[in-house]
Design a binder for these strands. Structure first.
Lengths: 348, 348
DNA sequence: ACCATTCTTGGGAGCGCTCCCAAGCGTACG
DNA sequence: CGTACGCTTGGGAGCGCTCCCAAGAATGGT
């Protein structure tokens, strides 16, 4: 039996583990990768050697030999990071982390700026070989998703770009969330319900508007288009929209804002106009962020299960990767919608 | 001249680039890695081939051959992620991302739970070969930093564990921030100034308390220990501390809370006790988070340059890595302190 | 014109692992 | 008791790159 080569400083290699266990490199590899084609006895010997030597496989070598990386990338549009930031980002990450916890997968964080950068990014992602990509907060004309699809890189998108999203996606139920919010306002006796929308090139914002419309129509309320004020998810935008609304329909008695931050802007304007919340005007937001909890009065808001979205996206992606490598070219693209929840506070 | 081997599907390799440029593999490698030992003409030829073929180096191969990874890990304690979350996490990430933007370095995100997990983590980090580690929000008895130091892995810590931090660190000036806050209260005529502290096993919380003490002493105010209420950075903790304070010193006319979230808790209790802010009691927080901006009244708070901390940490780490690999065993450990800024709003 | 340097260059060796083939053994069946 | 097949096993080949050595080309000095 050849003595295990003693190496100067470094970490133990597979070869050393094999020598220690008195088996061949191939066998040791099989044990470490959980192949069933190993006898129980051999397996034990190798496992003992691994434990004694504190062996941890070298990722780079694995990646090179196995043509995979055991890593996925989370691509975050840098520009939107700030305003989508509130709870969103860290919650998504926590969800992803949770789903990855007992996996060997690593999480690569990639901040992509403008479209040009994103185009290059696709190159890098495939060349640097991540096994899959998680796409967060993508707008309608983002080139990255299609690029990834062309390159055959598994990807999952949070939300969607449009109704006919081609990539696997995980979204929250924006439509139902909005509808529940407006229904709630109606049940509280409000009749002149306005909405402040987000950027309508974001599919979710569109769906929230649809939900609003649906609820208004179902209740037989006046579907006055002047009750709909477009904004951009920003606090200032929310304020501006609220001013427009007050001008067009001073008799408004409730507002559904498509984000908490916009609701905060609206609240400010309502206050300045001398209206009390909720006595004169009820207000509801979306996201159930820290802003909602700390607003005065505390803001009723639609909670999205962000962390769970992160978890689900990751699971879907891992599945996608597994399918891909096992040749299961199942063409079904999961399109998952998670339920939202209305958190009623004092503003409504 | 040998024709470039045509490969079936995959991405071009260095070998192919070399063939295309009519040079050897070694030369092509030199060009790509910016070695000066190449003639201008050769360089151009290789660069042209790279462009034509759309060559992107294979990271795994590089890592394996070069014994480095061009990746750093950001280690986030999972448990604290939530309460440190507000702006902290995403801002740090943005800073790190910015500093990494025109580097080849990748960012690995690692969520570590309890101490046991963190101990294992050190193993993995060295075995999986990241070139360096960014440590965020570390508490005093975290084993990870020392482990990394022993393993000789470059690391930078945000904040510190104690006054005699051994690792390179980047911190915000908690002491001066607190002092400025209290000075501001004093300049507004407040005389009975209380403080609600964070967990004092966090060095930063300790420093904020020190700053408070210093300012109180410098102004010749009564340094009554009953004006100091320890809490834990949570909203509920802040509320509890505020209740204690009111009981012990009902005449308190100002409160410096060591975080916005705790200030929010305190505000609630102050309201319930019938005190007006700022008329009866002035309130200041720390962090300048969204909570502060949206509180009613808007909360005066001490802003920390979080994003810049992320950027600076990263730069320090990259430098550390560069030193290490060039054999510059300079033993100087940078210990950077970034200035804070008092953002005055209506609560004071 | 010749030799010593310096600059470029090509390509072998090897990083640690996975994949896969072929060999060794054991077993069951005819 | 012989043959065929299945399970284990060892180890060669090769993933794409960096490192480094030695060879060739170019330069300069005398």
């Amino acid at each position: 039996m050849a003595a295990a080569r003693v190496r100067s400083g470094g970490r133990p290699t597979l070869e050393e583990v094999a020598a220690r266990a008195g088996v061949g490199r191939g066998t040791a590899s099989r044990v470490i990768n959980g192949s069933p084609r190993v006898s129980a006895q051999t397996r034990e010997a190798v496992e003992a050697a691994v434990a004694e030597l504190g062996y941890v496989p070298n990722r780079a070598a694995r990646a090179l030999a196995g043509n995979r990386t055991d890593a996925i990338a989370l691509v975050v549009p840098e520009s939107e990071t700030r305003f989508f930031a509130e709870p969103y980002f860290s919650d998504i990450v926590r969800g992803v982390g949770a789903a990855l916890a007992d996996t060997e997968m690593q999480l690569l964080l990639t901040l992509a700026g403008n479209d040009r950068e994103r185009r290059r990014l696709a190159q890098y992602l495939t060349a640097h070989r991540v096994d899959g990509v998680l796409l967060v907060s993508v707008h309608a004309d983002d080139p990255l998703p299609d690029l990834l699809e062309q390159l055959g890189m598994p990807a999952v998108i949070s939300g969607r770009r449009h109704a006919a999203e081609t990539l696997p996606s995980v979204d929250s139920d924006n439509f139902e969330g909005a509808r529940a919010a407006v229904d709630h306002l109606i049940s509280r006796g409000r009749r002149t319900i306005a909405t402040i929308t987000g950027r309508l090139d974001v599919y979710g914002a569109q769906r929230r508007l649809d939900g609003y419309r649906k609820a208004v129509a179902a209740a037989g309320l006046d579907p006055d288009e002047r009750l709909i004020a477009p904004a951009d998810f920003s606090e200032e935008g929310g304020a501006r929209a609220m001013r427009e609304l007050l001008e067009r329909r001073p008799d408004v008695d409730a507002v559904f804002a498509a984000s908490d931050v916009m609701a905060a802007g609206a609240r400010q304007v309502l206050r300045e106009s001398g209206r009390r919340i909720p006595d004169d005007v009820a207000l509801i937001g979306f996201d159930d962020s820290a802003v909602a909890r700390h607003m005065d009065p505390p803001l009723t808001s639609v909670r999205q299960p962000i962390e769970e979205m992160g978890r689900t996206m990751t699971r879907v992606l891992l599945q996608e990767i597994a399918n891909r490598s096992s040749g299961d070219a199942t063409q079904e693209r999961p399109r998952i919608v998670l339920p939202t929840e209305l958190v009623v506070r004092e503003s409504s």
